[in-house]
Design a protein around this nucleic acid. Structure first.
Lengths: 168, 168
DNA sequence: ATATATTTTCAATAATTTTCGAAAATTCGA
DNA sequence: TCGAATTTTCGAAAATTATTGAAAATATAT
């Protein structure tokens, strides 16, 4: 397979992959393109290589910056803005985990705290099953929260090395 | 907070939560409803409680069955079909992880295997960065795959207990 | 076998999300 | 300060995804 073709495939599957994870296709594709570009790119580079409009490009670059996955680069003597992606994939994963934890897991845990305090007679089967379900989800959620915190702090070598030994 | 209201909130946030994870709202809501229902429900029960159409209900129940999260229950003397959800939340998580691993992670790893074999001169910066990126994603992906396999096999007590000690 | 209850399908419609592209705003050099 | 280059915004259009509801299929009782 030629490089050109391989790059295309990488970009398009990264895009498809993203859509399974609540990330829109363009955002994932821009990210993919930057991941495999040796040098920083401009908006126009991306528009051209991905065949997308200026507005779309701009919006999704900014979103990637919000996620901490892409950053602006100033090239001396250039007027245009350049962008580059974090290439260390372990750092990328940690950033994504951190953001999603903050955006999704933490609010969910807060809600569960509230819901656990539902008023009602514990002899009512419906009350009991509700409280049990809420508290067991909460318990697992808190566990996941802690585990992810550790992962975020860990080094890749630690994860790959120690974790592997640990898991037989 | 009253039970009625708490249940409503649980269902609606579970639905919203699902949409961040590539699961459609109705499917997540049906699942939520079944999780907090003491007894099995019929399609009509769900239609009524969630205000959704028959077709939509039917379709999403079947999808939940495909995922292994819901099953049909035969109640003797009843003509209608009843449905119930797995209530052990650890089992639920494991099922979801297993399915998503199969549907998403494994195909991605297969693709990366192919892309790694791209032809081209290693002295070309673009070839080098592409191959490096693909192989480092692959490495991490394989690690995740193994880690998730272990998790799928593990007991909850093991996860919560040992894992916690391990993570300091 | 027929009537009735129940489930499933699927084409049409609705809702939502994504994308475009032109206009407005901003930046920067001269 | 002016004007060209560049970035950002945002309403409209397109694409995608979810939902409905009625008809068809299936199952069950009599």
């Amino acid at each position: 397979m030629k490089l050109i073709e391989a790059r295309q495939q990488f970009i398009s599957s990264w895009g498809a992959f993203g859509t399974h994870w609540g990330i829109n296709r363009t955002m994932a594709q821009i990210h993919a393109l930057l991941l495999i570009s040796a040098d920083p790119l401009t908006q126009d580079d991306m528009m051209e290589q991905l065949n997308i409009s200026r507005g779309n490009t701009n919006m999704n670059i900014r979103e990637l910056i919000n996620w901490g996955l892409v950053e602006r680069v100033l090239l001396s003597g250039e007027r245009k803005e350049y962008f580059t992606a974090e290439k260390d994939i372990w750092k990328v994963v940690k950033r994504i985990v951190k953001e999603r934890k903050k955006r999704e897991l933490e609010p969910m845990l807060q809600l569960l705290d509230k819901l656990e305090e539902v008023e009602g007679d514990k002899r009512d089967k419906n009350v009991r099953i509700f409280v049990d379900m809420v508290s067991s989800i909460k318990k697992l959620g808190r566990q996941a929260d802690k585990t992810l915190d550790m992962m975020i702090k860990a080094e890749e070598s630690w994860f790959v090395g120690t974790m592997m030994k640990f898991f037989k």
